[in-house]
Design a protein around this nucleic acid. Structure first.
Lengths: 356, 356
DNA sequence: GGCAGGATAGAGAGCGCTCTCCAGTGTCGG
DNA sequence: CCGACACTGGAGAGCGCTCTCTATCCTGCC
């Protein structure tokens, strides 16, 4: 057999983008062989592989993903869905604001860090009402994306159930409020809160209070419960608490309320760093020193924790690792849809800085 | 002609997802007709349209995007690329940190707000070294995305040039450092800085300083130049300045330096809100009252501006509108690649709050 | 030396859709 | 009453790729 010189025959028929056929012609082999080389499959003579590779380079060939997807039934894309509840609540974060939360950035970074090496990229979608939820579902069904990575901002989010019912591959960032056969990753919130409680007690704090997240969120519930239980074990059965919703403003207000009711407190556990930061601000504003007068512990170890003054002691929430794990779980599920829903729970750790 | 009852013949051959063919069979028409109805095209009898629609509903048909893309040569996806320089510089924000910047959230929100109604979604990509830049290029060439929306964090970012050279549709968020035939949107930075200068002067500030962005960024240059020029016009030819890089930390450090060199200053213009917020913190820490002792003006009107204490007076940067315009420009360019590169410049506005 | 059997390459059938022809139908003017 | 013409709907050719099936070649063994 005689293979033609790949370089001289390379130019595709027209000025349009070259196809497999063009490369095959240039290399003097069949389409199938080129396909095999490109997809790195067995049974191709090394010499021919080399000829094909040269032909690919010479023609500037790039495989057409649509054609590939059509036959493989794989989009090579996953949806990263930021999903809220029905959107009726006032004060609910708008889609854009979600990004402002350092938490979301960490999730995105973790997901992308895992997916990028595999040539898979996330499509960004928001779902905050019935219409946009339908859009997500349709999008997945159309095969635009192979599955969904879901970050819900609300416990009542109906999207997880819709996805599960539709049998679409999906992984949640946190345990759903009600049991749904769907995979998720989460952190051991109770254990994290216990770490905070133990640390405050070991520092000698006796009058400790907590700023909670929205009670509708299981994560917030668990942090509160874990903190209370641990404090009870240390002999502090009653813990004053003020409810926030994870925003800076709500944290400020909550700290004000706590201080109004308990001016002598000497320790605060906030359910996330942003609220802890707000607490720091209020305390300093009141002339209270942190950690000398009041010790403050946050939760998440987000970027604001180290940036705070004083730097926040906080419970590390391994968000990036968890996000990468989400992606891993999703891809496994896409490959083998028959796999049962799995949940992976991560351990938190205490990061001691200056505030406690 | 007699159309069969769509409901009874509906079930597709197997349990697999229904295709156009299945719907056509169910409706008793040809594939072409169903396609016409679905794509809302002319020349279909209303009665038949109805029959087809019922058949679609009965079969649960959803068009396969890959097949559609294959023939239309349109992915229905655009890439949202966050692009840095070569990544050698230490202290450079990692991909994930980019999200933490409220600025990026606003861009994403603006883009999504415009694209979502059209059923187009952005794919999130980072490009921070040669390899990932190639990945972006390849991705676009493969037809995975129809074009790129580029947010560069560095002036020397080579990606815009690569995109322009490859003839791929792309729109930048800011004017490229060197002239490149590529579309972009930007804000009139000089005019914005002038607004800040005028306001400080009209408040009676006499000893004004500024915290700049990285000098390699044209936007930072323009803000500084605009501020200096305007202050010169007001009779203040010399303006102390300290360089920051748009982060909170750099803003703190810059404010410290300014105060060290000019303890008596009474006005500060920071090139973005985050650094202005840091300035606020340093000033309060030093016991200086804002705005009584020192007036502070930021730039961007990002979410942190209103959340600061005192709330920041700032120059509004219409990021969301600009981002939407980027998307519009990109889609126009995808539709008609022969269109010349266009640039659209937005006007800033002063938002007066408490800090000045 | 002939033949089984593994390794390798090619042929060709789709994947599901769009879109360009064409054929058929009905309408109107001459 | 007939031909011209707008209007509809169908047939069928791909879009570029993967992958199964088959043909060919080569090696080794009896």
């Amino acid at each position: 057999m005689c293979y033609k010189d790949p370089v001289n025959v390379a130019t595709p028929p027209s000025g349009s983008t070259p196809t497999l056929e063009d490369v095959a012609r240039a290399a003097g082999v069949s389409r199938a062989t080129v396909s095999r080389v490109i997809n790195g499959i067995r049974n191709v003579d090394p010499a021919i592989q080399e000829v094909v590779r040269q032909a690919v380079a010479a023609t500037g060939y790039v495989p057409n993903q649509a054609a590939r997807s059509l036959v493989t039934r794989r989009a090579g894309v996953v949806a990263l869905v930021v999903s809220g509840a029905s959107g009726e609540e006032p004060g609910e974060p708008s889609p854009g604001q979600v990004f402002t939360d350092p938490f979301f950035g960490r999730v995105a970074a973790g997901i992308i860090g895992f997916l990028r090496p595999q040539g898979i990229h996330p499509i960004l979608m928001f779902a905050d009402d019935a219409e946009t939820r339908t859009q997500v579902l349709t999008y997945l069904r159309q095969g635009n994306a192979d599955g969904a990575l879901l970050v819900s901002t609300h416990a009542e989010d109906p999207l997880p159930r819709l996805l599960a019912d539709a049998g679409l591959p999906a992984v949640l960032f946190a345990r759903p409020a009600e049991p749904i056969p769907i995979s998720y990753v989460d952190v051991e919130h109770r254990a994290g809160a216990r770490l905070a409680a133990d640390h405050l007690v070991s520092r000698g704090c006796r009058r400790v209070a907590t700023i909670t997240g929205p009670p509708s969120l299981p994560a917030a519930q668990a942090r509160l419960a874990g903190f209370r239980d641990a404090m009870a074990v240390h002999g502090h059965p009653y813990i004053p608490c003020a409810e926030g919703n994870f925003t800076y403003h709500s944290g400020e207000a909550a700290m004000e309320r706590l201080l109004a009711g308990h001016p002598d407190l000497d320790g605060v556990f906030a359910a996330n760093d942003v609220m802890a930061q707000a607490a720091l601000f209020v305390l300093r504003h009141r002339g209270l020193r942190v950690p000398e007068d009041v010790a403050v512990i946050g939760f998440d170890d987000s970027s604001v924790a180290a940036a705070s003054r004083p730097a926040l002691t906080t419970v590390r929430h391994p968000v990036e690792d968890m996000a990468a794990e989400m992606a891993r779980l999703l891809l496994a599920q896409v490959d083998r849809p028959e796999l049962p829903a799995t949940s992976i729970i991560f351990d938190p750790a205490l990061v001691v800085r200056e505030s406690a």
